[in-house]
Design a protein around this nucleic acid. Structure first.
Length: 422
RNA sequence: GGAGGGGUGGCAGAGCGGUCAAAUGCAACGGACUGUAACUCCGUCGGGGAAACCCUACAUAGGUUCGAAUCCUAUCCCCUCCA
């Protein structure tokens, strides 16, 4: 594979050495083209299935950052149109169909994310933001089938792993979903025509869709386009990157506070540190290797560095430093810090009093009274760092003079604050 | 349209008239050990209640039975094969 090939261009060398490359449709061709023309134009597409992207998506954004750094031009495509269909690749069942309203609001929210990572302002290689809704909704069914549908072979499409698993498992694949590939292929063609975009970057699960686009470009425009996929990033325990404790690690601070974001990285598995430093930070290669190789207690310093770097990139220097200080206070000194996730509670809710179980539910640390009781029985619940021994402990307004810190286990802490407004 | 198979907890998957809030595995949660790690070990894992106990759940709606996830009927959904 690409490892055996002498890569000449700086951009691809960096990507390759840092572990970004899973596969490429033509690494040699892409490399030599890169050497001649620095201004490679590449795109990554994201469907608007949620309000935010999560850390799993960050890998491809980092790739675009490197691209821009080396003079290339990144295009971020938001799939306002394709989200209406839903990508079936490697999905075991059909995605729930989102309402147009829902999609539109997701699109708006997603647009705000990229500014932190890519430069959309300064020429000559400023990033572009596009939404495939603008051309996909224009398509006419009959024309589309005649002009493009004829270039797609069903036999070929069925042979892609992305749908094969679904078919092998005897799960239905609807015609709607089956069309997703054509639309994504068309996106690539459109960007190729309009902006001369010649590279599509995506996760390895996107291989089939990307290759289809390349084929379409060749057939329609007789041009040679490229595809580059990143490996599916998993954590050491084999889980897909992007979730922790069932919760997604969102990039949008409205959905996940910088403190919690920082904690996620701070809790990285030892064996993931090097990989993550390479993928998610821009520290020099040698430093990443050096820090990742630290042993024992010392590797914690590497994790802190990792957390600081990524949080700074995603949420800014101030937020990152705050998260770090909070962690020191909470974990090393067992103090209360106002930067901890905070829940507000209204005066009404504690009239005349409220049980500690109810408060635990309010805080979001547990989801039911039974769970609260269980947690307390297991000696896992703390109130201002004191062990809670009875689920019937009652609190009143007096106890809320200053915010209350509730903890579940050693790591999850929430502040409860009395609503101060009228 | 026809024939057959199937829908069980977050997922996978047992159970096929009572002992079923439902085996087992995974995931999750708490504890011990540690380094805010991993491994390992222990415990928990539908909801309400201080508790006795009560409520809701095995696709949906009815029925048979002292008793139903388990039997019957209808409906919906999925899969396979045939047309």
């Amino acid at each position: 594979m690409h490892k055996d090939i002498e890569i000449k261009s700086e951009f691809l060398r960096v990507l390759s050495s840092r572990g970004f490359i899973h596969d490429c449709t033509d690494i040699k061709g892409l490399d030599s083209q890169q050497c001649i023309n620095k201004k490679l134009i590449a795109y990554v597409g994201y469907d608007a299935t949620a309000q935010s992207l999560h850390v799993g998506h960050l890998v491809n954004i980092m790739m675009l950052r490197w691209l821009q750094k080396f003079g290339g031009q990144p295009i971020t495509l938001i799939g306002g149109g394709t989200t209406r269909i839903g990508d079936p690749s490697f999905r075991s069942e059909e995605r729930p169909i989102l309402s147009i309203r829902n999609i539109n609001s997701n699109v708006v929210s997603l647009r705000t994310i990229f500014n932190k990572y890519l430069n959309y302002k300064n020429e000559p290689n400023k990033a572009l933001m596009v939404d495939n809704e603008s051309w996909l909704t224009e398509l006419n069914y009959l024309e589309f089938l005649r002009d493009f549908g004829k270039h797609f072979s069903i036999n070929r499409m069925l042979s892609f792993d992305s749908v094969k698993t679904r078919l092998d498992r005897e799960q239905s694949l609807s015609f709607l979903e089956f069309n997703y590939m054509l639309l994504q292929a068309y996106d690539f063609l459109e960007l190729n025509r309009k902006f001369n975009c010649s590279l599509q970057i995506g996760g390895s699960d996107q291989w089939g869709n990307i290759v289809s686009g390349i084929d379409l470009i060749r057939r329609i425009s007789n041009k040679h386009a490229f595809g580059l996929t990143s490996p599916l990033i998993t954590t050491a325990d084999g889980k897909k990157m992007g979730k922790s404790h069932g919760k997604a690690i969102w990039l949008n601070p409205k959905l996940l506070s910088p403190y919690e974001f920082w904690q996620f990285w701070r809790n990285t598995d030892d064996s993931d540190v090097t990989r993550f430093l390479l993928l998610y930070t821009e520290l020099p290669y040698d430093d990443c290797i050096k820090y990742g190789a630290l042993k024992g207690q010392q590797i914690n310093d590497a994790k802190i560095l990792l957390a600081n770097q990524i949080t700074e990139l995603c949420h800014g220097k101030t937020a990152s430093m705050k998260a770090n200080t909070t962690a020191v206070k909470v974990f090393q000194h067992g103090e209360i810090d106002f930067n901890l996730p905070t829940q507000r509670i209204s005066l009404n809710e504690l009239k005349p009093m409220i049980t500690i179980s109810q408060l635990l539910i309010k805080s979001g640390l547990v989801s039911s009274g039974k769970e609260a009781k269980r947690l307390i029985a297991e000696d896992g619940a703390r109130y201002n760092d004191k062990l809670i021994t009875s689920p019937n402990l009652q609190l009143t307004e007096k106890d809320f003079k200053s915010p209350i810190k509730l903890s579940a286990g050693k790591k999850r802490h929430v502040l409860l604050k009395l609503e101060t407004d009228q």
